[in-house]
Design a protein around this nucleic acid. Structure first.
Length: 568
RNA sequence: UGGCCGGUAGUUCAAUUGGUGGAACGCCAGAUUUUGAUUCUGGAGGUCGCAGGUUCGAUCCCUGCCCGGCCAACCA
């Protein structure tokens, strides 16, 4: 089949949500208007799961020429805070998305919400219940068991108005009364068993201050906020599917909606192996000191990933690639990492750094008139595939650091790095041959003696002979010291907390290893937050606050590690 | 126990009104390579959850069953 659409549609994502938008638009719903929203609760920072929702909502708005609003669902003043509002906006901008128009707040709609609640009371569709939370919960019944109607369910509307207004005025204690919708205490969908619309909270709200003594619940606020803003497609995660009946019921029973009622569509949230996407768990990780904070590079929060060096473009590419469906899914974190590598491989500046230094002395290296080893500046490309990245000059001398892994006294099969009698290339420098090595009491090499071929400047010999390995190195006299954090999975279990396990039982005690590294001099001028490739090792980001500290973003693919694994 | 939603390579997703099941990542092999990286080529890998039914023909439609997730906050 070959229609003109094949060409134009190839790159735009297709999924059941977009299919619905296309169908709705074609059917003339909302007069062809498309509007979405991203509605975080300001009680924590964004994580990569939110990135999926953000990309979906903003992506659809853009593809269909519509708008996507940022609206804070700030209906619970006891757990929410202005600092999260600031942080979330910062993270959203970093990810690369700009909301349409002003930032919205559910709290801006408290007045309208209250009026609509009175409208429900007037229609006999809402009532004030004087019972406590525990009693209401018991009366709700259970799965397959009927609910019990509240003794206050048939109150007169006069009494309901009076009580509701006095709740608003602050006459009653927290938790002493609630406003409930009168729906159906026998409904199979538990959400429909007379849900709570308002609870009494004499709490200070960071935006409405002390104006309100009652606060709307999520269910009462969300759909109506969507409707007030003109949302057409209200996208949320699967666990809200049961709430859709409520969402529709509220909208259907309000007379003066400013726009055609929006529709809720649910999709599966993003999960990743070896981590957990839960604000509750995040908070405990931070509070118990398992990580340094919400921006610890091991956290799947956007600020954690940013500090770790994950490029926003790679995160966007990843969440677009995994698509949108209703299947509960857990994505392999390695898939995310492959997107990080793809992005970084293309753009990261190459540098040399030795993480676990082993001393090398070149025994036939020349000395100058003063008896000091001569220093030769060698030119090294900043990117193997991108000439425009230019080159830099790196000092080479007779005393060097190499990686401990790059030398073996007795090389195992298929090992083709340095060992006694074997010649390798020191990248862009010279060919060297190991002679012997000093070892410590445990037999570990402490110093390797080599000879070099003076005719191999630049890394190749005139006779064209080949070597099997090219290694990175740093001149000892010029090395810059740095602290490098090497990160591993936060949780050892691919599915923390599954099969009844306790999430924190699989917390990886060695999720961070810190080493004292030796860097080539150019890295002394590293930019804050920039990601470099340390050749043959991986990608490393400088800490935004201290450029002598590096975080390993992700390692390079490692064939040698695979070979070793297979031999076991 | 009731309701809702799911089940397609190892993993995650596709397959446009029922017509020989594809991609990405991972894995394996080869080529290239002054990063065991990158890049390129090829390969292995499937009882479309199970069983019936409708049909010339079913991953797709119907029924039943099995498995997984969510729901009984005055959280979102």
């Amino acid at each position: 089949m070959s229609t003109p659409n094949d060409e134009t549609d190839r790159d735009s994502p297709s999924d059941f949500v977009r299919d619905k938008v296309v169908a709705d638009t074609a059917a003339g719903k909302y007069h062809g208007r498309v509007q979405t929203r991203f509605p975080p609760e300001p009680n924590g920072f964004l994580h990569i799961g939110h990135a999926k929702s953000i990309a979906l909502n903003f992506g659809i708005a853009e593809e269909f020429g519509g708008e996507c609003h940022l609206r804070f669902d700030d209906t619970n003043p006891e757990t929410e805070d202005q600092s999260y509002i600031d942080g979330i906006q910062e993270d959203l901008a970093w990810l690369g998305f700009s909301p349409s128009g002003e930032t919205k707040f559910a709290s801006d709609y408290f007045g309208q919400l209250y009026e609509w609640a009175e409208q429900l009371i007037a229609k006999g569709l809402a009532y004030v219940d004087d019972q406590d939370a525990e009693t209401i919960s018991e009366q709700r019944g259970g799965f397959g068991q009927p609910g019990v109607e509240s003794p206050y369910r048939e109150r007169s509307s006069d009494e309901n108005f009076d009580l509701f207004r006095r709740m608003k005025a602050g006459e009653f204690e927290d938790g002493s009364r609630v406003l409930r919708a009168k729906i159906d205490m026998q409904a199979d969908n538990m959400q429909l068993r007379d849900p709570v619309l308002y609870r009494i909270r004499h709490a200070h709200h960071y935006r409405t201050l002390d104006e309100w003594n009652i606060y709307p619940t999520y269910d009462w606020a969300h759909g109506q906020s969507d409707a007030i803003e003109g949302t057409t497609h209200s996208l949320c995660t699967l666990e809200f599917a049961d709430h859709r009946g409520l969402y529709d019921w509220f909208l259907a029973n309000i007379d003066d909606l400013p726009y055609e009622a929006p529709e809720q569509t649910e999709f599966a949230r993003l999960n990743l192996t070896h981590t957990v996407m839960s604000k509750r768990v995040f908070r405990r990780l931070v509070d118990d000191g398992h990580v340094d904070g919400w921006d610890d590079p091991r956290m799947p929060t956007l600020r954690g990933l940013r500090r770790r060096g994950y490029p926003p473009a790679a995160i966007r590419a990843f969440v677009e690639h995994i698509g949108v469906a209703k299947t509960n899914s857990v994505h392999d974190i390695e898939l995310l990492e492959s997107f990080i590598r793809t992005e970084l491989n293309e753009h990261a500046t190459r540098r040399m750094a030795v993480l676990r230094p082993l001393q090398v002395t070149i025994t036939n290296w020349p000395t100058d008139a003063g008896g000091q080893p001569e220093v030769v500046m060698v030119e090294v490309a900043n990117h193997p595939k991108d000439e425009s990245a230019g080159t830099r000059m790196v000092p080479f001398s007779g005393e060097l650091w190499i990686e401990q892994d790059d030398f073996k006294l007795e090389p195992p099969p298929k090992y083709f790095r340095l060992s006694p009698g074997r010649e390798v290339r020191l990248r862009a420098g010279f060919l060297v041959t190991a002679v012997d090595a000093d070892v410590d009491a445990d037999g570990h090499p402490t110093l390797v003696r080599c000879t070099y071929d003076p005719a191999s400047a630049g890394g190749s010999a005139p006779d064209g002979r080949k070597v099997k390995a090219t290694m990175h190195w740093v001149s000892a006299a010029h090395a810059v010291d740095a602290t490098v954090h090497l990160y591993d999975r936060l949780f050892t279990d691919p599915h923390p907390g599954s099969d009844g396990a306790e999430v924190f039982d699989s917390l990886n005690p060695s999720s961070r290893e810190t080493v004292a590294a030796k860097l080539e001099p150019a890295l002394a001028e590293a930019n804050p937050g920039e990601v470099y490739q340390f050749e043959r090792l991986g990608y490393f980001a400088t800490d935004p606050g201290d450029t002598s500290v590096f975080h390993r973003t992700v390692g390079l693919r490692d064939e040698w590690a695979n070979i070793q694994k297979r031999r076991q």
